[in-house]
Design a protein around this nucleic acid. Structure first.
Length: 256
DNA sequence: TAGGCCATCTGGTCCT
DNA sequence: AGGACCAGATGGCCTA
């Protein structure tokens, strides 16, 4: 039944995902390579199929009912494959997002995944900027003693500020959980236990009491079905970063 | 049972 | 012309 017509990489969803290793592109990894490889194989296989079947082409008005149905099935199959590829990419995105994976945790919805990813990127960008400033202060500063004291104060400041400003309500909500995002960063600071992007924060940070979870429900229906990580990017509207210098990015990314 | 999420089908539009 | 992309419609599944 599945007359699997192919898609190609020529104009697919990929043009914007051009591999750029210099930028440490997310899609420079195996997921994207596998994606293109599969598409290439698929298109080659399909090309062979069409060449074998080759011959004269009819305009759509000349097609018989059966041929129209055949065409329809082909188009449907392509669309199905396209959506499967899209979902595969979405799964790839979920894999690298900082939230609890596992059989006991429900999969993030698509919209949640996208919003979480956006926040995650913003948070990483913000952290990177802070680190750049830090390095600049430490290595580019004046006298050694001065820089030492400056660095000390800067580091202690940065240690508490390397996160996006949260909605005040979100901060208070997070504090309800037992610790603020800032405090949590201290908790999770041991180098050996610092959570990698692929590994969510330790389980002790994952639990929410039911009332708080209820409070975190939002118009986008993002609450409840997944877990909030204090100090980590979160797709719910309460945890959206306040408008900052990234507002330009925001408007760019959200406008179509 | 209502609402959310998803997969699929379908027709239209744009691009190569 | 063919394929990719998009959005609307529809129906199924799941959860509160």
């Amino acid at each position: 039944m599945d007359s699997d017509a192919s898609s190609t990489c020529s104009r697919s969803s990929s043009p914007d995902l051009v591999v750029d290793d210099s930028a440490g592109s997310f899609f420079s990894n195996t997921i994207f390579q596998k994606y293109c490889q599969e598409n290439r194989n698929g298109s080659e296989a399909d090309q062979g199929r069409t060449e074998r079947g080759g011959g004269k082409t009819k305009s759509r008005s000349e097609l018989s009912k059966e041929e129209m149905q055949d065409l329809r099935l082909k188009v449907n199959s392509r669309e199905r494959k396209r959506m499967h590829d899209l979902n595969q990419a979405m799964d790839g995105l979920r894999e690298v997002m900082p939230y609890a994976h596992g059989p006991s945790v429900r999969k993030l919805s698509k919209i949640s995944t996208l919003l979480l990813a956006r926040n995650y990127i913003l948070m990483l960008s913000s952290s990177l900027e802070e680190m750049k400033k830090l390095v600049g202060d430490v290595y580019g500063g004046g006298a050694a003693a001065q820089s030492r004291s400056t660095a000390h104060s800067t580091i202690s400041h940065a240690a508490t500020s390397v996160h996006l400003p949260l909605h005040p309500l979100a901060q208070s909500l997070h504090s309800l959980v037992g610790s603020t995002p800032t405090a949590l960063q201290h908790h999770s600071s041991p180098p050996s236990s610092a959570p990698a992007p692929h590994s969510p924060p330790s389980a002790s940070f994952l639990g929410f009491h039911a009332p708080v979870q209820g409070l975190l429900k939002d118009p986008l229906h993002l609450g409840g079905s997944y877990r909030h990580f204090p100090g980590m990017p979160c797709p719910c509207t309460l945890c959206q970063p306040l408008p900052t210098a990234t507002s330009t990015l925001h408007s760019l990314s959200m406008n179509k």
